[in-house]
Write a protein that binds this DNA or RNA. Structure first.
Length: 454
RNA sequence: GUAGUCGUAGCUCAGUUGGUUAGAGCAUUAGAUUGUGGUUCUAAGGGUCGGGGGUUCGAGCCCCCUCGAUUACCCCA
């Protein structure tokens, strides 16, 4: 075997990285808990037919499928060969693969709700932080294994849920220090109203896909794409009008109303946005008529959280309302709304803006120097007593030169070293040195547990 | 899945028109320093030049394939 390596698009997370990731995740989870959300975990594997057909044709191709075991069983050879022919022609078949790695958290959640709707206490508010897998081509900020961090409320149509989710975004981003984030908000029914006005309700998908790209490719290219997707010049002109809407939230609302307020769907969308905006205090909340979001199961309000403009990272979270997610699994009539945090991207943004606090890196607080077998026998019970008092500490594993022990402490970011040698044992006092300040003092053995090591 | 760029020591990179035993800095290890680190000095270890095949008297350098990284498209977190 050659040099070991990782599968494409996957990563190891070293100690410092895990600490920083946990810092982010702990803040998000604690805010979820604060709002009454409950944790859920589902398996890494799902049955393939639970996932297939839920993410569109592109999505199906990106699902990691797992080869069945026992395909080499001679008894099954004929069947396996037949099934494999189907695979070659682009179909997937249970004979070859019946399990797959999960592709997102939403569909497994929908499956869970469909399976347990008789026993769940609605509205059911759950959060879920787990890895998901996509056979996509990796790029910056895009991996084949990455974490999603979702919170959803199912079994309630109340817009109070939207207001609360907006508040969660606000609270999390402020706590993380991303004070200049933006939360863009729009409504699928506003987009539907636009399509209706254009006289092309059936063209809603084409319209949303095209206008979603506005900030990326510019107005001219969007118009081009609309024409290519079969819209007339007249229809395109109406859309151009729509895209030109700007100003503060009130301005946008009144402009939207005069453009598409006469359609029932458009009107409803505008009213819902208005209601939510009026009940939210976040200054980061911005109505963005060009926001569309790809996932087509959204039916109501949609969100997209953007990183502070100075880092050019784009989306760091998103979500929206869906009327009938569990319908795919035979249980109709459970509406829901959810949001998601893009943990990997939030990490990159925080790294760039240097927002991780210094104490994230401090694990062990104090290192006992090991001067000899005899002296370490005195140090060991003192260390154990400190551990009893929740002071994180360790004893250097063998007697070594000071130089070596200092370097170990320094590299591991341990702020204090405790030196106990013959002199100290005689006086029952330990030398405690603060590495960062370069200062040291003597502390009675009995007082160590009451001293401060941070 | 399509296209471009790249791949030399643990890391960052040199390496001339193809020419002997492939170099540097940082990092590592040991010593100068037997109870006080971060500085300095000395020495050492570490590379089948991503992998495979080809051209050539001779390949890190040229050609083909493959793997990986990266960027754009598609799509998305």
């Amino acid at each position: 075997m050659g040099k070991p390596s990782l599968p494409q698009g996957t990563r190891d997370f070293g100690p410092d990285v895990v600490r920083k990731r946990n810092y982010i995740l702990n803040i998000i989870k604690s805010v979820f808990e604060l709002y009454g959300f409950q944790p859920l975990e589902t398996p890494a594997l799902e049955n393939l037919d639970t996932l297939m057909g839920k993410y569109g044709d592109e999505g199906d191709k990106l699902i990691f499928k797992i080869l069945n075991n026992g395909l080499d069983n001679p008894v099954k050879e004929k069947q396996v060969r037949e099934d494999f022919e189907k695979v070659l022609s682009g179909k997937s078949t249970n004979g070859i693969t019946e399990r797959a790695l999960k592709y997102d958290l939403t569909i497994p959640f929908a499956r869970y709700v469909a399976m347990n709707h008789n026993t769940l206490n609605f509205p059911f508010k759950r959060y879920q932080v787990q890895p998901v897998w996509r056979a996509d081509r990796p790029q910056r900020g895009r991996y084949r294994e990455f974490y999603q961090c979702d919170a959803d409320v199912v079994g309630s149509k109340s817009l109070l849920n939207e207001v609360e989710l907006i508040s969660i975004y606000q609270e999390v981003f402020i706590k993380l220090g991303l004070i200049n984030y933006e939360l863009r908000i729009n409504h699928r029914q506003i987009l539907a109203g636009l399509a209706e006005i254009c006289g092309g309700a059936d063209k809603m998908m084409d319209i949303t896909i095209a206008i979603d790209k506005l900030d990326k490719i510019g107005l001219e290219k969007v118009k081009e794409e609309l024409i290519n997707r079969g819209l007339t010049g007249e229809q395109t002109a109406i859309i151009e009008n729509y895209l030109g809407i700007s100003g503060d939230n009130n301005n946008i609302l009144s402009n939207l109303f005069s453009l598409i307020g006469q359609t029932a769907t458009g009107k409803k969308g505008i009213e819902e946005i208005k209601h939510v905006v009026e009940h939210s205090s976040s200054a980061s909340l911005i109505i963005d008529p060009t926001l569309a979001r790809g996932l087509n199961y959204y039916t109501g309000i949609i969100f997209e959280a953007k990183a502070p403009a100075e880092v050019k990272m784009g989306s760091i979270g998103g979500g929206g309302r869906y009327d009938d997610l569990t319908g795919l699994f035979g249980v109709a009539g459970i509406p829901g709304v959810g949001i998601s945090f893009g943990v990997d991207r939030i990490y990159d943004v925080m790294e760039e803006l240097k927002l991780f606090p210094d104490d994230v890196f401090i694990s062990t607080q104090a290192l006992f120097f090991n001067l000899s077998e005899k002296e370490s026998k005195i140090a060991f019970p003192l260390m154990q007593e400190m551990r009893q008092h929740n002071i994180r500490c360790e004893l250097y594993h063998e007697a070594a030169k000071f130089d070596k022990q200092f370097k170990y402490a320094e590299k591991k970011n341990i702020p204090f070293v405790i030196i106990i040698g013959e002199k100290e044992i005689a006086a029952k006092k330990a030398v405690v040195k603060d590495i960062r300040k370069g200062e040291q003092r003597e502390i009675d053995f009995d007082e160590l547990i009451h001293s401060i090591f941070n």
